[in-house]
Protein backbone atom coordinates (compact mmCIF):
# COMPACT_ATOMS: atom_id res chain seq x y z
CA UNK A 1 0.00 0.00 0.00
CA UNK A 2 1.28 3.47 -0.81
CA UNK A 3 -0.02 6.96 -0.13
CA UNK A 4 1.04 9.71 -2.51
CA UNK A 5 0.40 13.46 -2.31
CA UNK A 6 -2.03 14.83 -4.90
CA UNK A 7 0.09 17.24 -6.88
CA UNK A 8 -2.94 19.05 -8.31
CA UNK A 9 -3.79 20.62 -4.96
CA UNK A 10 -2.23 23.85 -3.84
CA UNK A 11 0.13 23.59 -0.90
CA UNK A 12 -1.26 25.16 2.27
CA UNK A 13 0.63 26.42 5.28
CA UNK A 14 0.88 23.97 8.10
CA UNK A 15 -0.66 26.41 10.58
CA UNK A 16 -4.00 26.75 8.65
CA UNK A 17 -4.48 23.01 7.92
CA UNK A 18 -6.76 20.99 10.12
CA UNK A 19 -6.22 17.25 10.26
CA UNK A 20 -9.08 16.63 7.79
CA UNK A 21 -7.74 19.19 5.31
CA UNK A 22 -4.31 17.63 5.65
CA UNK A 23 -5.66 14.17 4.86
CA UNK A 24 -7.67 15.42 1.90
CA UNK A 25 -4.44 16.50 0.20
CA UNK A 26 -3.52 12.82 -0.26
CA UNK A 27 -4.99 10.25 -2.57
CA UNK A 28 -4.95 6.67 -1.39
CA UNK A 29 -3.68 4.11 -3.94
CA UNK A 30 -3.97 0.58 -2.58
CA UNK A 31 -2.39 -2.46 -4.19
CA UNK A 32 -2.52 -6.01 -2.95
CA UNK A 33 0.37 -8.44 -3.32
CA UNK A 34 -1.13 -11.90 -2.94
CA UNK A 35 1.03 -14.94 -2.34
CA UNK A 36 -0.49 -18.33 -3.02
CA UNK A 37 1.09 -21.72 -2.85
CA UNK A 38 0.16 -23.65 -5.97
CA UNK A 39 -0.87 -27.25 -5.48
CA UNK A 40 1.78 -28.69 -7.75
CA UNK A 41 3.40 -32.01 -6.93
CA UNK A 42 6.91 -30.80 -7.77
CA UNK A 43 9.09 -27.69 -7.57
CA UNK A 44 8.91 -24.77 -10.00
CA UNK A 45 12.00 -25.65 -12.09
CA UNK A 46 12.76 -29.32 -11.40
CA UNK A 47 11.10 -32.63 -10.64
CA UNK A 48 11.81 -32.68 -6.88
CA UNK A 49 8.80 -33.24 -4.57
CA UNK A 50 7.58 -30.21 -2.60
CA UNK A 51 6.47 -32.18 0.48
CA UNK A 52 7.56 -30.82 3.85
CA UNK A 53 9.01 -32.77 6.74
CA UNK A 54 11.59 -35.02 5.08
CA UNK A 55 15.21 -35.47 6.07
CA UNK A 56 17.54 -32.57 5.13
CA UNK A 57 18.78 -32.37 1.52
CA UNK A 58 16.85 -35.33 0.15
CA UNK A 59 14.36 -33.45 -2.04
CA UNK A 60 17.11 -31.80 -4.02
CA UNK A 61 18.72 -32.35 -7.40
CA UNK A 62 21.41 -30.71 -9.59
CA UNK A 63 18.80 -28.27 -10.95
CA UNK A 64 17.44 -26.85 -7.69
CA UNK A 65 20.96 -26.75 -6.22
CA UNK A 66 22.11 -24.66 -9.21
CA UNK A 67 24.90 -27.11 -10.04
CA UNK A 68 27.07 -26.12 -13.03
CA UNK A 69 25.61 -27.43 -16.29
CA UNK A 70 22.11 -27.96 -14.93
CA UNK A 71 19.16 -26.35 -16.71
CA UNK A 72 15.76 -25.35 -15.30
CA UNK A 73 12.58 -26.81 -16.80
CA UNK A 74 9.51 -24.78 -15.93
CA UNK A 75 6.68 -26.64 -14.19
CA UNK A 76 3.80 -26.83 -16.71
CA UNK A 77 1.17 -27.25 -13.97
CA UNK A 78 2.41 -24.07 -12.28
CA UNK A 79 2.19 -22.11 -15.53
CA UNK A 80 -1.33 -23.42 -16.14
CA UNK A 81 -2.40 -22.48 -12.62
CA UNK A 82 -0.87 -19.01 -12.92
CA UNK A 83 -2.76 -18.42 -16.18
CA UNK A 84 -6.03 -19.53 -14.55
CA UNK A 85 -5.41 -17.13 -11.67
CA UNK A 86 -5.05 -14.31 -14.19
Amino acid sequence: MSVTPDASRQPATAARDSGVEQASRFEAVIGLEVHVELNTATKMFCGCAIDFGGAPNVRTCPVCLGQPGSLPMINAKAVESAIRLG
Binding site: C61, P62, Q67, P68, G69, S70
Partner: peptide, 11 residues
Amino acid sequence: VLQHYRPPYDA
Protein backbone atom coordinates in the same frame (compact mmCIF):
# COMPACT_ATOMS: atom_id res chain seq x y z
CA VAL B 1 37.12 -21.82 -9.81
CA LEU B 2 36.08 -25.44 -10.58
CA GLN B 3 39.49 -27.11 -10.14
CA HIS B 4 38.33 -29.79 -7.70
CA TYR B 5 34.63 -29.84 -8.62
CA ARG B 6 33.08 -33.31 -8.84
CA PRO B 7 29.60 -33.12 -10.40
CA PRO B 8 26.91 -35.23 -8.71
CA TYR B 9 25.45 -36.15 -12.12
CA ASP B 10 26.30 -37.02 -15.75
CA ALA B 11 25.52 -34.65 -18.62
